[in-house]
Amino acid sequence: MSEFESLGLKSGIWEGVIHREAQPGRLVLVHMGSRLAEARATAEAEGRWLVAAAIPAERLSDGVQSFLLLEDQGAEGEPPQPGAAHLGSLTLIAGDILDGDLHAELALMRSELELLKKELRRLAMDPA
Rank of each mutant, 00 (worst) to 15 (best):
K117M: 07
E112M: 13
E71Q: 11
L108M: 08
Q23S: 12
L123F: 02
A128C: 06
E44Q: 12
F4V: 02
E71F: 08
M125S: 09
A94E: 14
A37L: 13
D72K: 03
V28P: 09
L92V: 12
R35K: 15
R122S: 12
I93M: 15
T42I: 00
V64D: 11
R35C: 13
D72P: 06
Q81N: 05
M125T: 00
P79V: 03
E105M: 13
Q23P: 12
G16C: 04
I13G: 03
A124C: 00
K118N: 11
D72W: 09
A45M: 08
R122I: 02
G47K: 03
I55N: 14
V51Q: 05
E78Q: 15
L123Y: 01
L36V: 11
R26F: 06
R110I: 01
L68Y: 15
R20N: 01
S6A: 08
L70M: 08
M109P: 01
D62W: 08
G95I: 04
E58N: 12
S89R: 15
R59W: 14
A53I: 07
M1I: 00
I18V: 04
I55L: 15
V28I: 10
P79N: 09
E112T: 02
L87T: 00
L9Q: 08
D72E: 08
L102H: 06
V51A: 04
A85T: 00
L120N: 06
G83D: 01
L68A: 13
A22D: 09
L36E: 15
V30M: 12
